[in-house]
Simulated assay, not measured.
Amino acid sequence: MSVEVLSDKISLIDRARELMVEKIKSAIAQRDQCTIALAGGGTPKPLYEKLAQESLPWEKIHIFWGDERYVPVDHPDSNQKMVREAWLNQVSMPASNIHPMPTTGENPYTDAAKHEQEIREFFQCSAGEIPSLDIILLGMGDDGHTASLFPRTEALTVRDRLITVGNKGNSQRLTFTAPFINQGRCVIFLVAGANKRPALAQVFSPQGDEKQYPSRLIKPQGELWWLLDQEAGEEIASH
Rank of each mutant, 00 (worst) to 15 (best):
M1G: 15
Q230T: 08
L47N: 04
L47I: 07
F180V: 05
T164H: 04
P198D: 09
E49W: 01
A127E: 14
A39R: 02
Q212E: 15
N89E: 15
T175F: 01
G40I: 03
P44V: 08
W58G: 08
W225Y: 15
T110L: 15
S26W: 00
P72N: 14
T164W: 03
E210R: 12
I218L: 10
P46C: 11
L47S: 03
L138N: 04
I236H: 04
L38W: 04
N107E: 14
E210C: 14
N167Y: 12
R17F: 06
A37C: 06
D14N: 14
K211Y: 12
N182I: 14
G184F: 10
L56P: 00
I36D: 00
L47C: 04
I63K: 04
R173S: 09
Q221H: 14
R31K: 15
A237D: 13
G40W: 04
L133R: 03
Q80E: 14
R159D: 12
E210W: 08
K45R: 15
S11D: 14
P44A: 11
V165H: 06
P72F: 12
A192E: 14
Y109E: 14
A127S: 11
T103H: 06
W226I: 10
N195A: 15
H75F: 10
M101R: 02
D14P: 00
E235S: 12
Q212L: 15
A112E: 02
P57I: 09
V21Q: 01
K9T: 13
Q212N: 08
R159P: 00
G66F: 01
A192M: 09
L228G: 03
I13Q: 08
S148I: 03
D209E: 13
E59H: 11
R159F: 05
R69F: 13
Q80G: 06
R120N: 07
F176M: 15
A192F: 05
P198C: 05
G222Q: 05
L224Q: 11
V158P: 00
V5C: 08
G141M: 10
V187A: 06
D74H: 11
M82G: 07
R17Y: 06
T35G: 02
K45W: 05
L217N: 07
G41C: 13
Q124H: 15
T104S: 14
Y109H: 10
S11G: 12
W87N: 05
S238P: 01
E234M: 09
S132Q: 15
I236L: 10
A232Y: 02
N97A: 10
N107Y: 08
T103Y: 09
N170E: 11
M1F: 13
G128Y: 02
A192W: 05
Q202T: 01
E59Y: 04
G141V: 05
I236T: 11
